[in-house]
Design a protein around this nucleic acid. Structure first.
Length: 174
DNA sequence: CCCTGATTCGC
DNA sequence: GCGAATCAGG
């Protein structure tokens, strides 16, 4: 059984806004089918994805999640980092790249803890994997949020269409 | 056949 | 509200 927690919904919103397909989102969230994701998308009235997201999807090569090399995955998560990212046991490998929509807020390098290792003040933004294998960002949370500043803004920025457009404008101006 | 989202409707 | 089944299509 899996339920639509706030965090999973935030994650869904973000991934959907970034142009990931319903099935990709389903495997990353775990315990869901693509039908469930599509159903939720409709209930949230998120179904009108805007231009850029469509392009991302069209230009994304179709690669089986389990076949993506771990090295490639680590590189896509933390492309700003030179040192190798930590080893990850999960077979799920996201090619999610967070948008540079946060102005001067630096993209955190995920610490990739599992749920059981999460501390109270660790950012709970799911980075990859499913269920027990899910790894989280784990950087210090912003006050009043379950996310670090970067992911707090990421979740917020992927809310409504107007918010996304505003975020896109900010990015362009920066 | 692989995949995509959209819709319906019993639960 | 949820999501399997189904539809329509690439």
């Amino acid at each position: 059984m899996s339920e639509w927690t706030e965090e999973r919904i935030d994650s869904l919103r973000f991934m959907w806004s970034e142009g990931l397909s319903a099935s990709e989102i389903a495997t990353r969230l775990g315990g869901l089918t693509r039908n469930a994701v599509i159903g939720k998308v409709h209930r949230l009235k998120l179904h009108n994805r805007v231009g850029v997201a469509k392009e991302i999807q069209a230009n994304t090569p179709q690669v089986k999640v389990a076949e993506v090399p771990k090295v490639a995955m680590a590189a896509s998560i933390a492309k700003v980092v030179v040192r190798p990212a930590p080893r990850i046991a999960s077979t799920a490998a996201p090619r999610l790249e967070l948008p540079e929509m946060m102005g001067s807020v630096l993209k955190p390098v995920p610490l990739l803890k599992t749920l059981v290792d999460l501390n109270k003040d660790d950012c709970r933004w799911p980075v990859n994997g499913e269920r027990a294998e899910t790894r989280f960002c784990c950087h210090a949370v912003s006050q009043g949020s379950s996310y670090c500043e970067y992911h707090r803004l990421a979740a917020k920025g992927s809310g409504t269409v107007s918010e996304r457009l505003a975020a896109r404008e900010l990015r362009r101006a920066a």
